[in-house]
Design a protein around this nucleic acid. Structure first.
Lengths: 143, 143
DNA sequence: AAAGTTGTAATATTATCTATTTCAACTTTT
DNA sequence: AAAAGTTGAAATAGATAATATTACAACTTT
């Protein structure tokens, strides 16, 4: 499990909150998140590939590619964590095909576990960044 | 993420399916799962602490401590993966407290993410090992 | 007493995430 | 045109965690 998902949400929140007043560079985001600037650029690259942000060489600064209420946590998660490769659970990789349990346990569990995966994804889809940013602004204003 | 959860389900399935005919030792389970025998014994120790299996030094062989339909996937998951320590997501650990976003993002996301955690746990609670074993036996009989 | 097993600690290996270094390509400013 | 600051990306290093391995004491049965 990586921390790229929460880092990405942090990044997007910063872009929205600070983007109008200043240039949100990878260096600034590195300072806010405490994550190395190169990692930030990697995450931004993944968000860019997913059509969530725009970046430009030279001029610098990241911008949202679409409105906050059209970006769900699932979109962000899918962009930065490789969902297809591995699900919520990790299988032991070398079950013995000569054992009737060993050669079938993966198949048996897959169906049950993918239901859980789906439940997680549906929860992620139900939250947009607009809500995250609204919550953040509210907390900041009450400080 | 570890593979101890799926390994544990595999182990419990084996205990039920093979337990009447033979002694299900850590060595046998190592052969069926492809997981090192010491790791198997560690998993068994965790399942024993959770009151799911019984083991004995010397005589060998693991046994179920209660009926399959009284063991949910959640029981197994809780026994072998430290649920409290870390949730479904991993946070970047050093957000900048001097940044209004940095010092609040964790709090903002926590509520949303724990809802997802709960959804996952509820799904895990809804499946018992009795169903896993029934599915496995069905597939074996059709081979 | 011998053989086989569990329980457990200590160490090694492996995989993976994160950080770091480096530099070319690009944009804006002077 | 030059300088300063930035992104994109590759290569390497470091840190962390999961898994495997080794070793052996304690235990049970034959």
């Amino acid at each position: 499990m990586t921390s790229k998902f929460t880092t990405a949400v942090h990044i997007l929140t910063c872009i929205d909150i600070f983007g109008e007043q200043m240039r949100v560079t990878s260096d600034f985001l590195s300072g806010s998140t405490g994550v190395n600037a190169v990692i930030i650029r990697n995450v931004l690259a993944q968000l860019r590939s997913a059509g969530i942000v725009t970046t430009r060489q030279g001029s610098g600064g990241a911008h949202l590619a679409r409105p906050l209420n059209e970006i769900t946590l699932y979109d962000v998660y899918k962009a930065v964590e490789c969902i297809d490769d591995e699900g919520l659970f990790r299988f032991h990789e070398n079950p013995n095909a000569k054992c009737p349990v060993g050669r079938n346990i993966h198949k048996v569990m897959d169906g049950r576990l993918s239901a859980i995966q789906t439940a997680k994804e549906n929860e992620l889809k139900s939250v947009t960044l607009a809500e995250i940013v609204a919550d953040t602004k509210k907390i900041i204003s009450e400080e």
